[in-house]
Amino acid sequence: MSEALLDIPVNPTNPVEPFLRMDRMPHIWCPACGIGTTVNCFTRALESSKLNLDKVAIVSGIGCTGRVAGYANLDSFHTTHGRAIPFATGLKLSNPELQVVVYSGDGDLFAIGGNHFIHAARRNMDIKVICVNNLTYAMTGGQTAPTTPASVISATSPYGVFEPSFNLVQLAEAAGASYVARWTTFHVKQLSRSMEEVLHKKGFCFIEVISPCPTLYQRRNKMGDGLDAMKFYKEVSKVRNGAPTSECALTKSGEIVVGKFVDRDRPDYLELLRAQMTESLGDRYADPEVSCSEG
Protein backbone atom coordinates (compact mmCIF):
# COMPACT_ATOMS: atom_id res chain seq x y z
CA MET A 1 0.00 0.00 0.00
CA SER A 2 1.44 3.36 -0.92
CA GLU A 3 1.87 6.23 1.54
CA ALA A 4 -0.52 8.42 -0.46
CA LEU A 5 -3.49 6.14 0.13
CA LEU A 6 -3.00 6.40 3.89
CA ASP A 7 -2.82 10.20 3.80
CA ILE A 8 -5.91 10.80 5.90
CA PRO A 9 -6.28 14.35 7.32
CA VAL A 10 -5.82 14.63 11.08
CA ASN A 11 -8.91 16.74 11.71
CA PRO A 12 -11.25 15.96 8.87
CA THR A 13 -14.09 18.41 8.38
CA ASN A 14 -17.16 17.72 6.39
CA PRO A 15 -17.95 20.42 3.83
CA VAL A 16 -21.46 20.74 5.26
CA GLU A 17 -20.21 21.63 8.75
CA PRO A 18 -20.42 25.42 8.35
CA PHE A 19 -24.14 25.00 7.68
CA LEU A 20 -24.82 22.94 10.75
CA ARG A 21 -24.70 23.53 14.49
CA MET A 22 -21.92 21.10 15.13
CA ASP A 23 -22.20 21.75 18.88
CA ARG A 24 -25.53 19.95 18.70
CA MET A 25 -24.18 16.78 17.13
CA PRO A 26 -24.76 13.89 17.28
CA HIS A 27 -28.30 14.30 15.96
CA ILE A 28 -31.23 12.24 17.17
CA TRP A 29 -32.02 10.43 13.91
CA CYS A 30 -31.72 6.65 13.59
CA PRO A 31 -29.06 4.96 11.51
CA ALA A 32 -30.12 4.86 7.84
CA CYS A 33 -32.89 7.42 8.39
CA GLY A 34 -33.29 9.57 5.29
CA ILE A 35 -33.67 12.94 7.00
CA GLY A 36 -29.91 13.42 7.36
CA THR A 37 -29.53 12.84 3.64
CA THR A 38 -32.04 15.57 2.89
CA VAL A 39 -30.23 17.93 5.26
CA ASN A 40 -27.00 17.16 3.48
CA CYS A 41 -28.66 18.06 0.17
CA PHE A 42 -30.09 21.22 1.75
CA THR A 43 -26.69 22.40 2.96
CA ARG A 44 -25.26 21.88 -0.52
CA ALA A 45 -28.16 23.83 -1.97
CA LEU A 46 -27.53 26.65 0.50
CA GLU A 47 -23.88 26.69 -0.47
CA SER A 48 -24.46 26.73 -4.19
CA SER A 49 -27.32 29.24 -3.89
CA LYS A 50 -24.79 31.89 -2.78
CA LEU A 51 -27.50 33.39 -0.57
CA ASN A 52 -26.47 35.46 2.45
CA LEU A 53 -27.24 32.88 5.10
CA ASP A 54 -27.93 35.58 7.68
CA LYS A 55 -31.04 36.23 5.63
CA VAL A 56 -32.24 32.65 5.46
CA ALA A 57 -34.54 31.38 8.22
CA ILE A 58 -35.75 27.86 8.73
CA VAL A 59 -38.99 26.88 10.43
CA SER A 60 -40.00 23.38 11.51
CA GLY A 61 -42.98 21.82 13.14
CA ILE A 62 -42.90 18.75 15.36
CA GLY A 63 -41.62 15.28 14.61
CA CYS A 64 -38.36 13.75 13.41
CA THR A 65 -38.07 16.20 10.53
CA GLY A 66 -39.16 18.94 12.91
CA ARG A 67 -35.72 18.64 14.45
CA VAL A 68 -34.01 19.90 11.31
CA ALA A 69 -34.41 23.54 12.35
CA GLY A 70 -32.40 22.84 15.48
CA TYR A 71 -29.41 21.55 13.53
CA ALA A 72 -29.29 24.18 10.80
CA ASN A 73 -26.88 27.02 11.44
CA LEU A 74 -29.46 29.62 10.47
CA ASP A 75 -32.05 31.64 12.35
CA SER A 76 -34.20 28.67 13.19
CA PHE A 77 -37.59 28.05 14.72
CA HIS A 78 -38.92 24.82 16.12
CA THR A 79 -42.60 25.65 16.45
CA THR A 80 -45.70 23.72 17.49
CA HIS A 81 -47.15 20.66 15.79
CA GLY A 82 -48.46 21.55 12.35
CA ARG A 83 -47.95 25.28 12.67
CA ALA A 84 -44.63 25.83 10.95
CA ILE A 85 -46.34 27.35 7.90
CA PRO A 86 -48.39 30.01 9.70
CA PHE A 87 -45.35 30.89 11.83
CA ALA A 88 -43.32 31.21 8.63
CA THR A 89 -46.09 33.36 7.16
CA GLY A 90 -45.79 35.88 9.99
CA LEU A 91 -42.01 35.79 9.85
CA LYS A 92 -41.91 36.38 6.10
CA LEU A 93 -44.47 39.20 6.16
CA SER A 94 -42.76 41.04 8.99
CA ASN A 95 -39.32 40.71 7.44
CA PRO A 96 -39.72 40.18 3.67
CA GLU A 97 -35.99 40.21 2.93
CA LEU A 98 -35.73 36.84 4.67
CA GLN A 99 -35.81 33.69 2.59
CA VAL A 100 -38.04 31.50 4.76
CA VAL A 101 -37.81 27.74 4.46
CA VAL A 102 -40.29 25.42 6.14
CA TYR A 103 -38.75 22.03 6.75
CA SER A 104 -41.05 19.43 8.24
CA GLY A 105 -42.57 16.00 7.97
CA ASP A 106 -45.62 14.60 6.24
CA GLY A 107 -47.72 14.14 9.39
CA ASP A 108 -46.92 17.62 10.60
CA LEU A 109 -47.54 19.40 7.30
CA PHE A 110 -50.47 17.40 5.98
CA ALA A 111 -52.46 16.04 8.90
CA ILE A 112 -52.47 18.54 11.74
CA GLY A 113 -51.07 21.26 9.49
CA GLY A 114 -52.94 20.43 6.29
CA ASN A 115 -55.22 23.41 6.45
CA HIS A 116 -52.29 25.80 6.77
CA PHE A 117 -50.53 24.17 3.81
CA ILE A 118 -53.40 24.63 1.37
CA HIS A 119 -54.01 28.22 2.43
CA ALA A 120 -50.37 29.25 2.18
CA ALA A 121 -50.27 27.67 -1.30
CA ARG A 122 -53.50 29.45 -2.23
CA ARG A 123 -52.04 32.79 -1.13
CA ASN A 124 -48.81 31.99 -2.95
CA MET A 125 -46.99 32.99 0.20
CA ASP A 126 -43.30 33.36 -0.62
CA ILE A 127 -42.06 30.46 1.48
CA LYS A 128 -40.29 27.24 0.50
CA VAL A 129 -41.77 24.08 1.95
CA ILE A 130 -39.63 20.96 2.10
CA CYS A 131 -41.56 17.92 3.23
CA VAL A 132 -39.63 14.84 4.23
CA ASN A 133 -42.24 12.17 3.59
CA ASN A 134 -41.38 8.97 5.41
CA LEU A 135 -44.99 7.81 5.11
CA THR A 136 -45.47 7.54 8.85
CA TYR A 137 -45.41 9.28 12.22
CA ALA A 138 -41.92 8.25 13.20
CA MET A 139 -41.23 10.29 16.34
CA THR A 140 -44.22 8.84 18.11
CA GLY A 141 -43.61 5.25 17.09
CA GLY A 142 -44.79 4.62 13.54
CA GLN A 143 -48.48 5.41 13.43
CA THR A 144 -50.61 5.88 10.31
CA ALA A 145 -50.19 9.22 8.54
CA PRO A 146 -52.37 10.77 5.84
CA THR A 147 -49.59 9.72 3.46
CA THR A 148 -49.33 6.06 4.54
CA PRO A 149 -50.17 3.89 1.51
CA ALA A 150 -52.93 1.29 1.63
CA SER A 151 -52.16 -2.12 3.15
CA VAL A 152 -49.14 -0.86 5.07
CA ILE A 153 -48.96 -2.10 8.65
CA SER A 154 -48.51 0.67 11.23
CA ALA A 155 -48.74 1.00 14.99
CA THR A 156 -52.31 2.24 14.71
CA SER A 157 -53.22 0.12 11.67
CA PRO A 158 -52.08 -3.29 12.87
CA TYR A 159 -54.30 -5.00 10.27
CA GLY A 160 -53.26 -2.74 7.43
CA VAL A 161 -54.11 0.78 6.31
CA PHE A 162 -57.41 1.01 4.45
CA GLU A 163 -57.86 4.81 4.27
CA PRO A 164 -56.94 6.41 0.95
CA SER A 165 -53.80 8.54 1.26
CA PHE A 166 -52.92 12.00 -0.03
CA ASN A 167 -51.03 12.56 -3.24
CA LEU A 168 -49.03 15.50 -1.91
CA VAL A 169 -47.79 16.86 -5.21
CA GLN A 170 -51.29 16.90 -6.67
CA LEU A 171 -52.59 18.58 -3.53
CA ALA A 172 -49.88 21.24 -3.73
CA GLU A 173 -50.55 21.96 -7.38
CA ALA A 174 -54.31 22.12 -6.89
CA ALA A 175 -53.92 24.49 -3.97
CA GLY A 176 -51.86 26.87 -6.09
CA ALA A 177 -48.17 26.23 -5.48
CA SER A 178 -45.76 27.93 -7.89
CA TYR A 179 -43.29 25.09 -7.84
CA VAL A 180 -43.83 21.40 -7.13
CA ALA A 181 -41.22 18.64 -7.24
CA ARG A 182 -40.71 15.20 -5.77
CA TRP A 183 -37.53 13.22 -5.24
CA THR A 184 -36.41 10.35 -3.07
CA THR A 185 -33.34 10.29 -0.86
CA PHE A 186 -31.76 8.19 -3.60
CA HIS A 187 -31.86 11.26 -5.90
CA VAL A 188 -29.44 13.43 -3.96
CA LYS A 189 -28.13 15.41 -6.93
CA GLN A 190 -31.58 16.19 -8.28
CA LEU A 191 -32.87 17.01 -4.81
CA SER A 192 -30.02 19.45 -4.15
CA ARG A 193 -30.70 21.10 -7.49
CA SER A 194 -34.42 21.44 -6.75
CA MET A 195 -33.65 22.91 -3.36
CA GLU A 196 -31.28 25.43 -4.91
CA GLU A 197 -33.89 26.24 -7.53
CA VAL A 198 -36.59 27.06 -4.99
CA LEU A 199 -34.18 29.25 -3.01
CA HIS A 200 -34.20 31.49 -6.07
CA LYS A 201 -37.85 31.11 -6.97
CA LYS A 202 -40.54 33.51 -5.80
CA GLY A 203 -43.80 32.27 -4.38
CA PHE A 204 -44.96 29.13 -2.65
CA CYS A 205 -42.64 26.25 -3.53
CA PHE A 206 -43.04 22.64 -2.49
CA ILE A 207 -40.58 19.78 -2.57
CA GLU A 208 -41.60 16.34 -1.39
CA VAL A 209 -38.77 14.00 -0.48
CA ILE A 210 -39.64 10.33 -0.14
CA SER A 211 -37.43 9.16 2.67
CA PRO A 212 -37.01 5.87 4.53
CA CYS A 213 -37.85 5.21 8.13
CA PRO A 214 -36.00 1.93 8.60
CA THR A 215 -36.74 1.63 12.30
CA LEU A 216 -40.52 1.72 12.11
CA TYR A 217 -41.90 1.72 8.59
CA GLN A 218 -39.41 -0.56 6.80
CA ARG A 219 -39.01 -3.05 9.60
CA ARG A 220 -42.69 -3.36 10.39
CA ASN A 221 -43.48 -3.93 6.71
CA LYS A 222 -40.60 -6.30 6.10
CA MET A 223 -39.04 -3.88 3.64
CA GLY A 224 -35.48 -4.39 4.86
CA ASP A 225 -32.99 -1.80 6.01
CA GLY A 226 -31.69 1.52 4.73
CA LEU A 227 -29.77 -0.04 1.90
CA ASP A 228 -32.84 -1.98 0.81
CA ALA A 229 -34.74 1.31 0.77
CA MET A 230 -32.17 2.81 -1.60
CA LYS A 231 -32.40 -0.26 -3.85
CA PHE A 232 -36.18 -0.02 -3.77
CA TYR A 233 -36.17 3.68 -4.66
CA LYS A 234 -33.70 3.05 -7.48
CA GLU A 235 -35.81 0.23 -8.83
CA VAL A 236 -39.27 1.78 -8.71
CA SER A 237 -38.52 5.47 -9.28
CA LYS A 238 -39.18 6.95 -12.65
CA VAL A 239 -38.10 10.48 -13.52
CA ARG A 240 -40.96 12.18 -15.35
CA ASN A 241 -40.43 15.92 -15.28
CA GLY A 242 -43.64 17.74 -16.05
CA ALA A 243 -45.79 14.68 -15.39
CA PRO A 244 -49.40 15.44 -14.50
CA THR A 245 -49.45 15.35 -10.72
CA SER A 246 -52.70 13.38 -10.82
CA GLU A 247 -50.64 10.46 -12.14
CA CYS A 248 -48.14 10.62 -9.30
CA ALA A 249 -49.99 8.91 -6.45
CA LEU A 250 -47.89 6.61 -4.31
CA THR A 251 -48.56 2.99 -3.41
CA LYS A 252 -46.80 0.63 -1.04
CA SER A 253 -44.55 -1.01 -3.60
CA GLY A 254 -45.47 0.52 -6.94
CA GLU A 255 -43.84 3.13 -9.10
CA ILE A 256 -42.58 6.38 -7.54
CA VAL A 257 -42.84 9.14 -10.12
CA VAL A 258 -40.20 11.77 -9.38
CA GLY A 259 -39.25 15.02 -11.05
CA LYS A 260 -40.27 18.63 -11.26
CA PHE A 261 -43.95 18.75 -12.01
CA VAL A 262 -44.89 22.42 -11.69
CA ASP A 263 -42.85 25.57 -12.25
CA ARG A 264 -45.05 28.56 -12.91
CA ASP A 265 -44.98 32.27 -12.21
CA ARG A 266 -47.79 33.78 -10.22
CA PRO A 267 -47.69 37.01 -8.23
CA ASP A 268 -47.00 36.21 -4.60
CA TYR A 269 -48.94 37.41 -1.57
CA LEU A 270 -46.97 40.58 -0.98
CA GLU A 271 -47.08 41.54 -4.64
CA LEU A 272 -50.83 41.03 -4.70
CA LEU A 273 -51.24 43.01 -1.49
CA ARG A 274 -49.18 45.93 -2.77
CA ALA A 275 -50.99 45.96 -6.11
CA GLN A 276 -54.42 45.96 -4.48
CA MET A 277 -53.57 48.62 -1.92
CA THR A 278 -51.93 50.85 -4.50
CA GLU A 279 -54.96 50.51 -6.75
CA SER A 280 -57.38 51.30 -3.92
CA LEU A 281 -55.40 53.87 -1.96
CA GLY A 282 -52.94 55.37 -4.43
CA ASP A 283 -50.49 57.70 -2.68
CA ARG A 284 -52.13 57.08 0.66
CA TYR A 285 -50.78 53.54 0.72
CA ALA A 286 -47.78 53.32 3.01
CA ASP A 287 -45.32 50.54 2.26
CA PRO A 288 -45.26 48.19 5.24
CA GLU A 289 -42.59 48.93 7.80
CA VAL A 290 -43.43 46.17 10.18
CA SER A 291 -40.26 45.95 12.26
CA CYS A 292 -40.26 47.94 15.46
CA SER A 293 -37.34 50.16 16.31
CA GLU A 294 -35.14 50.23 19.35
CA GLY A 295 -35.58 52.84 22.03
Binding site: S94, H119, P288, S291
Partner: peptide, 27 residues
Protein backbone atom coordinates in the same frame (compact mmCIF):
# COMPACT_ATOMS: atom_id res chain seq x y z
CA UNK B 1 -52.38 50.16 4.82
CA UNK B 2 -52.10 53.91 5.32
CA UNK B 3 -50.09 53.60 8.54
CA UNK B 4 -47.60 51.10 7.08
CA UNK B 5 -48.02 47.51 8.19
CA UNK B 6 -49.82 44.28 7.50
CA UNK B 7 -53.04 42.59 8.43
CA UNK B 8 -53.61 39.05 7.30
CA UNK B 9 -56.76 37.07 7.82
CA UNK B 10 -55.63 33.53 8.57
CA UNK B 11 -57.39 30.22 8.05
CA UNK B 12 -58.11 29.70 11.75
CA UNK B 13 -57.17 30.89 15.22
CA UNK B 14 -54.35 28.38 15.55
CA UNK B 15 -52.71 30.01 12.54
CA UNK B 16 -53.45 33.56 13.66
CA UNK B 17 -51.99 33.01 17.12
CA UNK B 18 -48.71 31.61 15.75
CA UNK B 19 -48.40 33.93 12.74
CA UNK B 20 -48.14 36.87 15.13
CA UNK B 21 -45.24 35.15 16.86
CA UNK B 22 -43.44 34.60 13.57
CA UNK B 23 -43.94 38.32 12.99
CA UNK B 24 -42.52 39.19 16.41
CA UNK B 25 -39.35 37.19 15.72
CA UNK B 26 -39.17 38.98 12.40
CA UNK B 27 -39.08 42.23 14.37
Amino acid sequence: PTVGGIFIQMEDELAASIAIQGAVWGG
